[in-house]
Design a protein around this nucleic acid. Structure first.
Length: 748
DNA sequence: GTTCTAGAAC
DNA sequence: GTTCTAGAAC
């Protein structure tokens, strides 16, 4: 768009002499060209070519008009059967609400959004010397920035029948043509046009998990998909994205953010993680085993529960145990409660809880990192009760993860399954492990019925709780080990897996090697298969050059790596030789601090697998690796959060990395670093160039490869604050304390 | 990826 | 005058 010839909506719509869709009420939502198109009112009488108009700023005989005057004028025109076009800076929902209300039930309310780059807007405003709105010179930039901080894109849920987004002059022209062509009885289809549903476009990690419906979602033109998806598909996408986005952060930040919203505080002022309590004790929530469908005697069961709890509480450090049942009238719960009190068991470390075990945190506010499942011997979903509920709530991820650990379970045994971070139970409830446990069965309709043999039954039930609590202890121990920064592997002790659990490759040592085989990355074998190995040594038909290790194919295109770009590759090939920088190696991935961190905390999770240089190389067979990297990144984010609860993390990949060897960035969203120096640095983490790990996994699993975003345009995009989206002319201004969303400018 | 630096922008 | 960007070299 030509900056010298700013688009004036006044000019634009003064050309619209006939806009005759009966009682179409247009609200023009203008934030980008704010001061160029100061609020003007146009009244289009139906079936007439006469245009009445009034500016909010000039409605009162040349003086600034008030909102009340505008509303009155609009209501009056509507009453007269006219179509009304309101041209006004309706930045937020609240400001628009009164106008939308004018539409009532019979009048379609449309919105046209002129969403132009803020930089353009500011430069225009600054150049302008005289303005109806008493806004002149340099103050304009401050106003624009301040307004942009508040802006909320309109949504159909506010009462709009149709919302059209215009990103440039051509979009505006199209819009103009559409409305110009309307006849008296014509109508326009409802929904979003020109841009996706605002919610679906939110791509900021920080905003993502908040599920904050009102989050402003501005995107620069290059980031906007100009397709016009159907409304239903948009809604589906919206729902999907809110679920998906919540996975992108650690559950603790998510919950903290929730608290923050409750308090109604400004996002920008307090970072979402600030309420994180780092001393949340590890907690196992477990249902009463065998007393429901397996019809085990409640008295006997409650004795065993209390005994075993007492036995283990001392061994579990600060960990807590919680017996959970759905119903308030639960007999087993009251029995256990009573007996635990009699035995003076510490009620802070062991207590009972009434609620849904799959919604302990979201509905009960009870944070449990591990839950037990009263499983069936096949370790399959279905059946009823707790087992069905947990498998359903955890999604298919649990089934897959369970299969990796064990095929079946004998009565009296338990098996811990790490919950993939893709599971809603992980993202929503903060559950990291599900421990499947199988108790004795006294129900003749179920397998392995003991037919009231309570001598065996009690022994089996004792074993079941012993095994359950041991598994839990093992999880706690490993997590503690992890947070101490140990580079030992995270697998539980072999003894935890062998007895009564038929693993695919038990015992544990085999399991570990199996896991390594699975995401294989055997350096001699090469992840990408043999094809690239062959290609790597034949001349490229386009360049005639030979590919070597330093000049190899990256995805479908030739990408050469300079010597300076080989650092990560060297570490990945020999992580043991770089113990000084490598924080941890496990499952063929290495974790290290970024040499030039772009935020307070900035880690890289590096694959040690040769042949995977960048995202373009990633294919379906690397899904397991991507998940491993993601899980490792999440664990480290959690660990870092324990050190500083105010941090917020985002996990993702650069569309086109500068350094060879696939690496996942785990980066805190403060961007407080002297190493973040230029536009490329900023945009590589704050535009679609940065591909969220969860999105990459989703892309690869559904399309077989990752979606890469155009490097050039994204990296040279205007600088916008990742929180409030305000635009800034350069990096120092962007990073300077004022005017940012943390401390909104009050001048003007 | 960083560093250096010419020259544009302020 | 200083600040900042962007391109080349590494």
């Amino acid at each position: 768009m030509n900056e010298d010839e700013p688009l004036l909506v006044n000019e634009l719509f003064s050309n619209v002499l006939v806009i005759a869709a009966a009682l179409v009420f247009l609200i023009s939502y203008l934030f980008a060209v704010i001061r160029e198109v100061y609020g003007s009112f146009f009244f289009y009488p139906v079936n007439q070519t006469v245009v009445e108009f009034a500016l909010q700023d000039t409605i009162g005989n040349g003086k600034s008009g008030t909102k009340g005057q505008c509303l009155k004028a609009a209501a009056s025109a509507l009453k007269d059967g006219k179509s009304v076009f309101i041209d006004r800076c309706n930045l937020d929902r609240e400001q628009r609400a009164e106008f939308v209300k004018l539409g009532g039930t019979n009048i379609d309310v449309h919105s046209i959004v002129l969403d132009l780059p803020a930089k353009l807007c500011i430069s225009r405003s600054v150049k302008r010397t005289e303005h109806e709105g008493s806004l002149q010179g340099g103050k304009a930039a401050a106003v624009v920035n301040r307004m942009l901080q508040k802006k909320e894109l309109p949504k159909v849920s506010e009462g709009f029948a149709r919302i059209t987004f215009c990103q440039n002059e051509s979009d505006v022209q199209t819009c103009l043509n559409i409305y110009s062509a309307l006849g008296p009885l014509d109508t326009l289809p409802n929904g979003y046009f020109g841009q996706k549903n605002p919610d679906a476009k939110i791509q900021l990690g920080i905003m993502k998990f908040l599920k904050k419906a009102e989050v402003p979602a501005t995107n620069s033109p290059s980031d906007v998909n100009s397709s016009q998806p159907s409304l239903s598909s948009q809604i589906a996408e919206e729902n999907y994205s809110s679920y998906r986005h919540s996975e992108n952060v650690t559950p603790s930040t998510q919950s903290a953010a929730k608290e923050e919203l409750k308090e109604g505080e400004d996002l920008a002022v307090h970072s979402a993680g600030s309420h994180v309590s780092s001393n949340d004790a590890p907690t196992l929530a477990f249902p009463s085993i065998s007393t429901s469908d397996f019809q085990f005697n409640h008295e006997k069961a409650s004795d065993i529960i209390v005994d075993k709890v007492q036995e283990f509480l001392n061994k579990l450090g600060n960990a807590r145990l919680v017996l959970v049942d759905l119903s308030h009238g639960s007999k087993i719960l009251s029995l256990v409660k009573e007996k635990a009190a009699q035995k003076h068991i510490n009620s802070k470390k062991f207590f009972t809880h009434v609620g849904d075990i799959t919604r302990l945190y979201s509905e009960g506010g009870l944070r449990c990192n591990v839950i037990a499942n009263a499983a069936n011997w096949r370790l399959k979903p279905g059946g009823g009760g707790v087992n069905a509920a947990i498998f359903k709530a955890a999604g298919p991820a649990l089934e897959v993860a369970t299969k990796e650990q064990a095929q079946m379970l004998h009565p009296g045994n338990a098996v811990a399954v790490p919950l993939p971070s893709t599971s809603p139970l992980f993202s929503r409830e903060g559950i990291t492990h599900v421990i499947h446990v199988l108790g004795p069965n006294m129900n003749p309709q179920r397998p392995n019925c003991l037919h009231n043999d309570y001598i065996t039954g009690c022994e089996v039930l004792r074993n079941a709780y012993t095994s359950l609590f041991q598994e839990f202890a093992s999880v706690v121990k490993n997590q503690a080990k992890f947070s101490e920064g140990s580079d030992e592997n995270l697998l539980p002790n072999s003894s935890d897996y062998t007895k009564g659990v038929e693993t695919k490759h038990s015992p544990n040592s085999d399991q570990k090697s199996k896991r390594e085989d699975e995401h294989n990355c055997d350096r001699s074998k090469k992840c990408k298969g043999s094809q690239d190995e062959v290609e790597a040594n034949i001349p490229d038909s386009r360049t005639g050059k030979k590919h070597t290790n330093d000049d190899k194919i990256c995805g479908s295109m030739t990408k050469s790596w300079g010597s300076w770009a080989q650092g990560l590759y060297r570490i990945a090939m020999n992580p043991e030789r770089h113990k000084d920088v490598v924080l941890e190696t496990s499952d063929n991935v290495a974790v290290l601090n970024d040499l030039y961190p772009k935020a307070k905390r900035h880690l890289l999770v590096l694959t040690c697998c040769e042949g995977l240089d960048c995202l373009a190389d990633v294919r379906k067979e690397h899904l397991h690796l991507l998940r491993t990297m993601h899980d490792m990144g999440m664990l480290w984010a959690q660990k870092l959060l324990q050190e500083d609860g105010s941090l917020i993390f985002r996990l993702g990949y650069h569309s086109v990395p500068s350094m060879r060897q696939l690496h996942l960035h785990v980066i805190s969203q403060d961007f407080d670093s002297k190493h973040l120096k230029n536009k490329k640095h900023w945009n590589s983490f704050n535009t679609a160039f940065f591909r969220d790990s969860v999105d990459v996994i989703e892309d690869v699993s559904s399309h077989g490869k990752a979606t890469l975003r155009d490097e050039e345009s994204l990296l040279s995009m205007e600088l916008r604050c990742h929180r409030c989206r305000s635009a800034h002319p350069n990096i120092p201004r962007l990073k300077s304390p004022l005017p940012t969303c943390r401390a909104p400018s009050t001048s003007v």
